[in-house]
Design a protein around this nucleic acid. Structure first.
Lengths: 221, 221, 221, 221
DNA sequence: GATGAATGAGATTTCATTCAT
DNA sequence: TATGAATGAAATCTCATTCAT
């Protein structure tokens, strides 16, 4: 029992060491620029060994993305403690997602990399499956928060939690992605319009979201 | 003059033929799966010749994305004719973007591919520069529509057009991307929540947007 | 004594189990296509354990070949019972070899695999040494039969048994090998010549051999 | 015309250079011990280039075998000039085959390597197809010689040329192969029987063949 | 301009074999 | 003895890109 346990733990540790090495490289050079030889070198292992632990380069990358998703989910979970209305929970998740984006930009990128792939392209790859699970888990948290908000009256009653979760998730991801890839440029080029800071944009985004969820006279006819 | 003009036109035509060939392949197999050999074959040219017209594979892909952006912008422009309030224009652009996504899913994907790249990775590549211009143009159209709305009172006055444009663009793109890559799965897996159809999700999204733009009592303090 | 005997027997049994597993795989997929992982799996052992019983993959294969040689030799021995002239014994061995080829085509192949290797490549490997012994034994049987034939007058007197044994062995092996590897094709492609059945070819071969061994006027000057 | 001709010739030359390099290595170390990197090095080309000219390592090896077969066939053709009876032609081919074996032992080995493979394993590989053609050609020469012998009365009339060709080919190949792989040992180990020299064995073999082909009283009923 | 052969790097994969436990 | 993780070398294959003609 203890022996196989130890083996299991060691195997897990080794896998982790590899992901550590890969992650550092992926973060510093991007997916395409990294070679498996480099990863093997950095992990002080042979290339063949990598293939004992991962199906291929993409699988390895998805494991990094999985880490990112896990960190993100942990941040969500942390933020949900304490008494909160549903709407407050939605906002809390949104802010946690934003903190995740800010504090773990590289992980956000890996998650996005995964997110922008068609499902068929990662189901069947262990790392991809993991991401899939975690992605669903995250979406479920949003949906549950919305449902609570509908139940406790902090969110307007005509909202379908599932629809809302998908839309909220897509919106936030899209906005953050845009900020990540184009932000430098937007803050420079104010030819037509004076562009605001990233923080202002994010604040505006959160305000928009809140408005659209609040109960009020604007209920869809 | 006329000679070099003709040369230029011929060169342009040839470039177009190549993009035609590349586009068909990219659409059917995705960027990575397509080889320049295939493109050269399909264009009935040698591989080396491709490099006379394009800097590299990515450049070629960005030219396809540029076509997509142009189509999208044309759709925007078309929809903006007639008497409309600013809010109606914003909605019209949103709906045109959605039509673009629906009717030109493959182009939407190429545009997204470009969109998810850091600026540095495409400035300096002709195709990338084109995308950059067109992307800015599109964003400008949104900002202008918002500004008009603010001016004509159809959009609440405390909104900054530039911020709003960035946020709106990111939101819509993120939602559509999510629908494109994960939609099949979402429509199947309604374990916790009954997932709605794509149309319902989109409708909900537009409703959210409109709510958040409307003038009303919810004005940010 | 009894303990080490038991150990020995157990070791032998284990070795046999491994050869059983390997044999099945080699027969179905050929030497190169089989991996030691597969063999270990099939034998329900770890890969490392295989190396406690065999020097390497080739050694293991030679053990299979050794089995084949033993079966062949047994078939030779069986066929030599009863009153027979030397020529009849030679023929009997030839027919037994042919039965071996027909009934144990896979073993014939393994034997051939060994046979076509240079001596240096298998001396020093236990399985190879075994094959070597058994091969010599088989050749000796042929030589003895020829010698008997010379003695009893059924084979022409100017024949040297050793030379004849080598030649007969090589001839038969070569013909059978050709039949095994190319037979399907030969029976189809009769463009220039109407190819006969395998049986006819074998019959013709035996007839040739007999003619060349018979005493008669054709004695080499 | 001349341009594409030159290209063709150059391509052929390049292919030949590669085969030259590969041949030298295969001859000195054997198929398995040679790596494609070595071949590329020796040919002063990149490994990728090898794959422009050959499907894989085996294909390359078969091209070497093809050279061997061509040399062999040329030796056959040379020997068939001049007035000869069918039987004399058969013998001449046999002796040429023996010279090929003696003077081009390495080529004989490559040919044998091919010969011992099942047809399915090399059809579909260009080099294998070439070998197949050449092998058939060689066999056809034997069959034709036998047919002539039957026609001119130098070979007994009840012989079927096709059957005889297959059998003769197999016999000779088998005997030579045995001599090549085991000869050193046979000439040493004369425990039971005094082994003769290689030459004597070959002479005996040819004598056997001739006896079995000659017209005479032993005609099969 | 146009060609296509050549490159060189790297992904992917496979495996026999070794070794620490 | 037995294990199975790790190795390291190699085969295979693919491709974007370059370059001599």
């Amino acid at each position: 029992m203890t022996i196989s346990d130890r083996k299991e733990r060691e195997k897990e540790k080794r896998r982790n060491d590899i992901v550590d090495a890969a992650e550092a490289l992926f973060f510093s050079k991007g997916y395409e620029a990294v070679t498996l030889d480099e990863i093997a070198d950095k992990a002080e292992l042979s290339k063949g060994t990598l293939y004992l632990y991962f199906k291929n380069k993409l699988d390895l990358y998805f494991f990094v993305a999985g880490r990112g998703l896990q960190i993100m989910i942990d941040m969500f979970q942390e933020t949900l403690t304490g008494e909160k209305t549903g709407l407050q929970k939605v906002r809390a998740i949104g802010e946690a997602y934003h903190r995740f984006f800010t504090q773990h930009g590289h992980y956000f990128q890996t998650v996005n990399f995964w997110d922008s792939r068609e499902i068929d392209s990662y189901l069947g790859i262990p790392g991809g499956e993991t991401c899939h699970q975690l992605g669903n888990q995250a979406l479920g948290m949003v949906a549950r928060a919305v449902a609570e908000g509908v139940a406790d009256g902090s969110i307007r009653p005509d909202i379908d939690p599932a629809k809302a979760a998908v839309v909220l998730w897509g919106q936030a991801t899209g906005v953050f992605q845009l900020l990540q890839t184009k932000v430098e440029h937007f803050l420079q080029c104010h030819d037509d319009f004076p562009f605001a800071s990233v923080e202002e944009i994010v604040a505006f985004f959160f305000d928009m979201i809140e408005r659209s969820l609040l109960p009020g006279p604007g209920g869809k006819a």
